[in-house]
């Protein structure tokens, strides 16, 4: 079984102050100077403390069950439910991935909050979340280039806990990603540690497509991360 591992420089993520502010709710130009200054300070600090890592592994032994809306990978059955099923069912192989921003940014968030610097604590938290997503984007771009070179395409990435796929299925995912490069640990309640981590699946095949945004597939209409309000 093959795959790839990555270590990114925080700077490569190209996180902008405005992007962090937009996740916090602000429209361009609406944020206060004090907040913008703090965000840029935290972004600078994040360059030193975030250890951005990602990994994907390829799995060729996959089978789909249309009636059950499941995918079986190396004999483990994943109940991915209909939305994700419809997006990846034409895949002939799959990549399972993990990505993390490391422990430290989460630790600083907690520490700041404890010491009463609530705003700074919150900004660490948002930066950590944005960083891990941005790193996953870079990882996915690299995967796409690798797969395109073989004349195939990839799907969007999908995570347990989204679109009806239960978070508890993380346990199976981690069974297939033993000794992971990101050094993420999964708790019995299916929580990943470091907190700023994500996991999931990407379909691979001649007849699959990566859409610009997946938000329209999801039913969390009020999500702060929703890219289009449609």
């Amino acid at each position: 079984m093959t795959g790839s591992t990555f270590q990114f420089d925080f700077k490569d993520l190209k996180l902008a102050v405005s992007q962090v502010e937009s996740v916090m709710g602000y429209k361009e130009g609406e944020s206060q100077e004090t907040i913008s200054e703090l965000v840029s300070e935290v972004l600078k600090e994040a360059e030193e403390i975030c250890t951005m890592k990602a990994e994907y592994r390829f799995f060729d032994d996959i089978a789909f069950d249309e009636a059950e809306k499941t995918v079986t990978i190396n004999g483990l059955v994943f109940q991915i439910k209909k939305i994700i099923y419809s997006q990846i069912k034409k895949s002939d192989s799959a990549a399972l991935f993990l990505c993390t921003a490391g422990e430290e940014i989460g630790a600083r968030s907690k520490k700041s909050m404890k010491e009463g610097d609530l705003l700074r604590g919150y900004i660490y938290d948002v930066v950590g979340s944005e960083a891990v997503e941005a790193a996953a984007d870079l990882m996915q771009d690299q995967l796409e280039r690798e797969i395109n070179a073989l004349g195939k395409g990839i799907t969007n990435r999908f995570s347990p806990g989204y679109c009806g796929w239960l978070v508890a299925e993380q346990h199976k995912l981690f069974q297939l990603l033993t000794d992971n490069f990101c050094e993420i640990k999964l708790s019995s309640s299916a929580l990943m540690y470091p907190m700023k981590s994500i996991s999931g699946i990407i379909g691979i095949g001649k007849n699959v497509k990566r859409h610009p945004y997946t938000c329209s597939l999801c039913d969390m209409k009020d999500c702060i991360y929703r890219r289009s309000k449609a």
């Binding site: 916090m24 709710g25 602000y26 206060q32 009463g116 705003l119 919150y122 900004i123």
Partner: peptide, 13 residues
């Protein structure tokens, strides 16, 4: 949604 988390945190502080 007239203010966001940062302003709420400053108020709380």
């Amino acid at each position: 949604k007239e203010i966001y988390v940062p302003q709420m945190l400053m108020a709380a502080k």
